[in-house]
Every structure is written in C-alpha cells, then in structure tokens.
Design a protein around this nucleic acid. Structure first.
Lengths: 97, 97
DNA sequence: AAGCTACTTAGCTTATTAGCTAATAAACGA
DNA sequence: TCGTTTATTAGCTAATAAGCTAAGTAGCTT
C-alpha cells in the first residue's frame, strides 16, 4: 500500500488536486490532462507520476497514449485511516455545528 | 478558514501527524509535546506553528505555558471537502470491497 | 528589577521539489 | 524503416521547508 506520507504529500499540491478533480469525470490520457494546465507537459507528467506513486491514480496504456484513472479506494482508505489516527479519545471531542 | 493547501501541507509531514496523534488524548503544553520527540524544541515549536496556521490545533496561554489542543472540526471539514472535490461522478465509481 | 522558566523567532545550512528545456522511449502510419 | 505522435526521464535553476543553535519575548518568583 502507498504510505500516508506519499498520499498527503501528493495531495499537498494544488495542481495535483486539480488533476484529481479533473479525473472525477472519467479517465483521461496524459496529453489531455496536460492541455488543461498552463504548465509544460513534462511538468504535468511528473505530477502524474507522483499521483501514481501515491496510488491515487492508476495507469493503462491504450495504443500510443497512457490513460490515467482516479482510484478513490486508496484515497478513501488513507483519509479514513487518518481520521481514526487523530480522532480524539475520551471527552475531548469538539461538538460539530 | 484555513486553505486546503495549508491543511494538506501540514498533514504531509510525519512528525506533524505524530503530534496530532499525541494530542488526541487531550491538550498539552509545547514543552511536553517537544519532550516526546528527538528533534530540538525550536523545531517542534515551528511544527506547532504550521499546525496552528492550518487551524488543525488551537492555542491558549495558561500561565507561563502555551497549551495546544486538537481541533478536529476544521480537520474533518477539510477532509470532507476534499472527498467531495475528487469524488467520481457518473459511472466511474470503483466498488469498495 | 533580577533571575528563572517556558516558549517562539531569527538566521543559517541542507535537502526536497516545482518549474523549465532538451533528450529519450514507445507505438503507429506511410 | 523513417517520421510523427504521445509521453516520460534527465539535467538544470529557483523556491520551499526541515533541521540546528542562538537570540528574543512573556510570565512568574523573590
């Protein structure tokens, strides 16, 4: 499994969060993702590699293009794990409005 | 409200996650927190400042010491916001086992 | 006020990372 | 196989951040 470190570091960058947001409508090839951002293609490609290392996306080759797909299972696991990790114990819980 | 950027950057560091974990049992003064880690007190103090900027903890002066308390409301809001932000739409949802 | 305790801020060094351009790799059509 | 499209990797620079020690601030005690 991807380390929490990798997951949260991946999420710490706004461009990478935008990429995940973009992918919620379905898988996209690297080029189409890069086209949506002002940064150079190579820069986006490396962001995608970070997301893949964190297992937030999966890749699949489709002919000459490589398709990136959101993987929310790992994502949700990481978040749930963290929620439990820091959840107050005893009488420290703050009331949520 | 704290920016998502600040929140996820704060969570990206393992030491800071450990601090949050430590605080789940209740508020602690800076010195007691620092004592639990191998790093210098000044280093922990700055980690605490990052957590405070991200509004993951609140502070309160108590005599000569400054007490840090976990604030899970902001934390949960950020996580929920992100979950919605990247949640797949349409038929892209992967089945969770 | 002088000194002590508790903590933060400043200033520095080192490591990591985002951005770029250029070079490389892999698939495909002529 | 040669060129084109699609995408990644390499190599560089600049910015960010973590670590340290030392200096500064704030409250308490006497």
């Amino acid at each position: 499994m991807a380390s929490p470190d990798a997951v949260f570091k991946a999420l710490a960058d706004p461009t990478r969060r935008e990429i995940l947001h973009l992918l919620r409508d379905g898988p996209l090839p690297s080029g189409e993702i890069a086209a949506k951002f002002p940064s150079a293609w190579a820069t986006i490609s490396r962001h995608l590699a970070v997301l893949r290392d964190a297992e937030l996306v999966t890749t699949e080759r489709n002919g000459s293009s490589i398709v990136y797909e959101l993987d929310t299972t790992v994502f949700q696991d990481a978040v749930e794990h963290l929620l439990n990790w820091v959840q107050p114990r005893g009488s420290n819980a703050k009331r949520r409005s």
